[in-house]
Computed example of a mutant assay.
Amino acid sequence: MENLILQMIEAFKELSYLGIILALTFEFVPAELVLPLAGYWVYEGTMNLYGAIFAGSIGGVLGPLTLYALGRCGGRVAIVKFGRYFFIKEVHIDKSDQFFEKYGGSVAFLGRFIPGVRTAISIPCGMAKMNVWKFIIYTYLAMLPVTAIYVYLGYSLGTQWEKAGELFSQYANYMLISIAILIIWMIVKRRKLNVQ
């Protein structure tokens, strides 16, 4: 399966930056493969680092936007019925719902950093009819650092770009700590506002 996806991504290379965007628009194509490979293309000199990061971030918004639209237009029934085509199980939807209820619209940003929630979090945002522009901005702000790290790792590793996932997990721990601090700060701030 991974080889088939890699062949598909290589075909998207012919479309340059648009190819990166299109590859990431399909939620079943893992960003963990596309972005380091885009970094490798930068290493080869066929793309610009900043252009690859920008294209990756845009694609990283369009993919979740399709799930947001599915949640907004089809609701939970459609998600349960069609979610398997996006590798989303009902348990993922349940976790995402709980996370959305707890943290509100900010989950479009925060949920991107939590395994088991990051893909499915777009669905409750759509079901809750969250403002689409707010959703896009939060998602973009979350995807930009993740994309930058993956693309840069692919660029730095060159011909060994496949190792980017292992290295990213080291960076991810620092990122998750930062996100945890942000979540705690938001909860404290929200409670102070509710007290006043």
Rank of each mutant, 00 (worst) to 15 (best):
K189Y: 05
I20G: 00
G104D: 04
G154D: 04
G105M: 07
F100T: 13
N194P: 06
E101P: 06
V188D: 00
Y68K: 04
R112D: 00
I9A: 06
C73F: 13
A78G: 09
H92C: 02
P115A: 07
Y140G: 12
P145N: 04
L153Q: 05
A148E: 01
I136K: 02
A172W: 06
G45R: 07
G158P: 10
K95G: 00
Q170H: 14
F82M: 07
G19I: 07
I58R: 08
A52M: 04
Q160P: 01
L157V: 11
G75I: 05
G75D: 01
V151W: 00
G154K: 06
N48S: 11
I114F: 03
E14P: 09
G111L: 05
L67Q: 05
S122E: 02
V61G: 02
V132I: 14
L144A: 11
Y85S: 06
S96C: 04
I21D: 02
Y17C: 05
E14K: 13
E101V: 13
A128P: 09
F100Y: 14
V195Y: 09
P145K: 07
L6P: 09
R112Q: 07
F100V: 11
E32T: 15
P30V: 12
A31F: 08
C73M: 15
F87A: 08
G45M: 04
V34D: 00
M47V: 12
G71E: 00
N3P: 09
H92T: 12
N48P: 01
S156G: 08
V107A: 01
M1E: 13
L110W: 10
E101R: 15
M186G: 10
M186H: 12
K13N: 14
G45W: 00
A128S: 14
P145G: 02
T46C: 04
T159H: 11
L15R: 11
P36A: 08
L37R: 12
G83A: 04
Y17N: 03
Y140F: 14
A52I: 06
V188T: 11
F109I: 05
F87I: 12
G111H: 03
L110T: 14
A38R: 08
F109G: 00
I93R: 00
L70W: 00
V107Q: 03
F54Q: 04
M130T: 13
M127R: 11
A69T: 15
K102F: 08
K81H: 13
Q196K: 14
L176D: 11
I88H: 02
Y103F: 15
G45E: 03
A128C: 13
L67I: 05
L176H: 07
P36E: 03
A148M: 04
F99I: 12
G83F: 06
G39A: 05
F168N: 09
L4A: 14
L110A: 10
Q170F: 15
N173L: 14
E2D: 13
